[in-house]
Design a protein around this nucleic acid. Structure first.
Length: 663
DNA sequence: TCACGGAATATTTTT
DNA sequence: TATTCCGTGA
């Protein structure tokens, strides 16, 4: 410690509990912080940033890596409020956005142009789909994996550091006969990316690791620049990310990682919570701090959470406790069917709101994006304002991607994927014609020249003329991002009208996109951001006219709810087969992850928690089928998880406990 | 060569 | 429910 405590502007000893304080003041050397749910992890990180800055460390030499860029931004903002605006100059973001920045700076070292394009998941799939078709593998005898599956296999191979062969043998043994073809396709995909200067999400990580591992000068330059590393959500990093941290750490090894092994929910993406256990081995002399006191939830909720996580085969090392008094046990609600489940949630929320709980303090959580469809309809009918997070994405909808395609070809004339998008929108141009036109265009260096060189066939010459006019107007150098957007939308509007019958709704999305564009002054940075951190809520999700943007309840996948908290939480579809999802039932490690997911969901609630499941579900083929509640919440004593019913089944009304607190 | 319709098939979570 | 493949007609 460079100064005595009283010389600091912030009184750390008053603001933090002893273990938090230890995590904050231990600023030198490797440090592992195990922080339970609701234990003030964000607070700890925030104070630690302020502390480092107060100790006189230049903000620019602190790097804070988090799971979303939003999380990093908020922490730095909070730190600024605590101390001063110096904290805003701390470098923060996700591994992917950090990689993006570094790789652009050192692009020549990795053999790429600095204006490389980042492919999101759907770009990746389209490109794979294109190659799959070209190579003719779709027509092979038997079922060749689809583009989506192929993308998953490729990604898993990198993120879990396994070969393609291993992934197929482990997870997709039924594709073993196609091993050679899949490998062929994988090589073609890699070649295509290199030729087009495309990087997918996984390339960002791999190339950053390779850059650091193979270029000693780059490595030491970066570790001199970032002398203090902080990594949030360490349980959800994979082997490559752990290696990046290792390579980035300078001789001082000022590396702090924070995580909670019982909240690891991204193994499907290659995350390995054992990274936490291995951290002290990689960094000898690591200090370990545990933060176990929970400030979020009332005791009855923690009790249930502890019972749930206790069912895990893996024994986690901490038990949450709280000094918060009061609270009522969470409730397991049996609803007659899916619609009753929705209606129960809506009814209860109405009662809560009447009692003074604001909408923004209420959330409904579920395993998968589509689980909320019926509820969304019900909320719309009743006029309750909500916002949906996770699941399908604004940025991935066709009309948004279409508009981005015009911008992308302005930067990279060789972007075949985007040219296909653009050309296929024109009547009478199909894949064959698009390829021919692309061949002509890609010989030129700019989109303007390229499109001018095309001699269109009569059948589409008129609409093609419009496209040509568009590209003569577009000029990256003299126009702002928003101006480019406006001209593009002017061209695209009529095409969209033709293509989609929900044209007005999509037009609103485009207006929204324009207002986002107005915040950027460089097209390449705008495009990179849209791929790395797309706005993850769709604008038309607000079914309630005139609701203010801040007073809405939240519908969210559990994955997207990570790190967040609400006064009242509903978990719906707590059915075996849905949650845990049928997918993971056979594999013990996947089932284990589902259990941790349930644990994460329950620990989001501060005061009230309902776990709801429908008794009967309509499934295609079977009609109405009875269901069993999730194994994660079955057989828990009523003193910990009380029971309630809602609706009627087979003409017999359920008995229902009195609705204790919302009457 | 394009557009469209029918049939078959697989269905999670995210940077 | 969306994707993908295949057949048919223009």
């Amino acid at each position: 410690m460079t100064k005595s405590e009283k010389n600091f502007r912030i009184s750390y000893t008053d603001a933090l509990n002893p273990s938090q304080l230890k995590a904050v003041t231990c600023t030198r050397g490797p440090l592992l912080v195990i922080a339970g749910a609701g234990s003030g992890k964000t607070r700890t990180l925030t104070f630690r940033v302020a502390r480092l800055v107060e100790e006189g460390i230049p903000p620019g030499s602190i790097l804070l890596l988090t799971f979303t860029r939003k999380a990093a931004g908020e922490m730095l903002k909070r730190a600024s409020k605590l101390l001063d605006e110096r904290c805003e100059r701390v470098a923060g973001g996700t591994f992917h956005s950090f990689a993006n920045m570094v790789l652009r700076r050192f692009s020549s070292r990795i053999g790429f142009d600095s204006s490389f394009v980042i492919m999101d998941r759907s770009d990746t799939e389209s490109l794979i789909g294109m190659l799959r078709r070209e190579l003719g593998y779709g027509k092979l005898f038997g079922a060749f994996p689809k583009k989506q599956t192929l993308a998953t296999i490729f990604s898993r191979s990198l993120n879990k550091s396994l070969s393609i062969e291993e992934v197929i043998l482990n997870d997709y043994p039924h594709f073993e006969p196609f091993m050679e073809e899949v490998l062929q396709l994988y090589r073609a995909y890699g070649k295509q990316k290199r030729e087009h200067s495309f990087l997918d999400f996984d390339d960002l990580l791999i190339l950053l690791r390779n850059l650091l591992a193979e270029n000693q000068d780059v490595r030491s330059s970066l570790s001199r620049q970032y002398q203090y590393l902080m990594v949030d959500e360490y349980q959800d990093t994979n082997a490559i990310q752990a290696e990046i941290i290792y390579l980035l750490a300078g001789p001082e090894k000022n590396v702090m990682v924070v995580g909670d092994d019982s909240q690891s929910i991204y193994a499907f993406r290659g995350a390995n919570f054992r990274n936490i256990m291995e951290f002290p081995k990689r960094f000898p002399g690591t200090k370990i701090v545990r933060i176990e006191e929970n400030y979020r939830s009332v005791q009855p909720i923690l009790k249930l959470a502890n019972v749930i996580i206790d069912r895990a085969a893996e024994k986690y090392t901490k038990v949450l406790y709280t000094r918060k008094q009061g609270g009522v046990p969470p409730t397991l609600v049996r609803a007659a069917d899916e619609n009753h489940q929705s209606r129960f949630v809506v009814e209860t929320i109405k009662k809560m709101v009447r009692k003074g709980i604001p909408y923004e303090q209420i959330a409904v959580l579920f395993r998968a994006g589509f689980h909320s469809f019926d509820l969304e309809i019900e909320l719309g009918k009743q006029g309750l304002p909500f916002v949906k997070v996770g699941g399908f994405k604004f940025m991935e909808s066709a009309h948004i991607k279409d508009v981005l395609a015009y911008l992308r070809v302005l930067l990279t004339c060789a972007d075949r994927l985007s040219w296909y998008r653009i050309l296929l929108l024109i009547e009478n141009i199909g894949p064959q014609t698009a390829q021919k036109i692309y061949d002509t265009i890609s010989k030129k260096h700019t989109a303007k020249e390229g499109i001018n060189a095309v001699r269109p066939h009569k059948s589409y010459s008129k609409p093609f003329g419009r496209l040509n006019t568009l590209f003569q107007k577009l000029d990256v150098k003299s126009m702002s991002v928003a101006q480019l957007g406006e001209v593009i939308i002017e061209y695209y509007g009529p095409l969209m009208e033709n293509r989609f019958d929900d044209y007005p709704k999509r037009m609103k999305d485009l207006e929204q996109l324009l207002s986002i564009m107005a915040r950027y002054h460089r097209v390449d940075l705008f495009l990179a951001d849209m791929a790395l951190e797309p706005p993850n809520t769709s604008m038309d999700d607000v079914l309630f006219a005139g609701s203010s943007s801040d007073n809405r309840l939240t519908l969210s996948t559990i994955h997207s709810a990570k790190g967040l908290e609400w006064n009242s939480v509903f978990i719906i579809w707590a059915l075996d087969g849905r949650f845990p999802s049928a997918h993971g039932l056979e594999r013990p490690e996947e089932l284990e992850e589902e259990l941790r997911l349930m644990y994460v969901a329950t620990t989001r609630a501060k005061e009230y928690l309902y776990i709801v499941y429908p008794m009967q579900v309509y499934t295609r083929g079977l009609g109405m089928a009875s269901c069993t509640p999730s194994r994660f919440v079955e057989g828990i004593p009523e003193t910990i998880l009380q029971r309630q019913s809602f609706g009627r089944v087979n003409r017999q009304r359920f008995y229902s406990h009195d609705d204790h607190y919302w009457r």
